[in-house]
């Protein structure tokens, strides 16, 4: 029988679907009986979803336009020397 600490240690593996059938069954059995672990797994799922929904892309603002221009001008300045 898994302890709550065992369940918490395997929480990411469970929500990412990385556990084998037997381990998943043991986890599900514990979760069916333990309100604390059930809530904890819910918290970890919410955490995963929130971290995955952080915007990865940059805003297309003026600063970025300036940085892009700086990168391209640096490239063209260096090109003649690089052969």
């Amino acid at each position: 029988m898994l302890s709550c600490q065992d369940v918490a240690t395997r929480a990411s593996a469970l929500i990412d679907g990385e556990l084998g059938t037997w381990q998943t069954l043991q986890m599900r059995l514990h979760l069916a009986m333990c309100k604390g672990c059930h809530r904890f797994i819910g918290q970890m799922q919410t955490t995963r979803d929130l971290t995955e929904s952080l915007p990865a892309a940059d805003a297309q603002d003026e600063d970025n336009e300036d940085r892009i221009s700086a990168i391209l001008s640096q490239l063209y300045e260096e090109k003649p020397d690089s052969g």
Binding site: S3, C4, Q5, A8, K35, G36, C37, R39, F40, Q43
Partner: peptide
Amino acid sequence: NLAAAFDGRGRWKNMPELW
């Protein structure tokens, strides 16, 4: 730092909140 959340038998010291 998760170990501090459990007692000597691996049970929650404080019940996690519902989010």
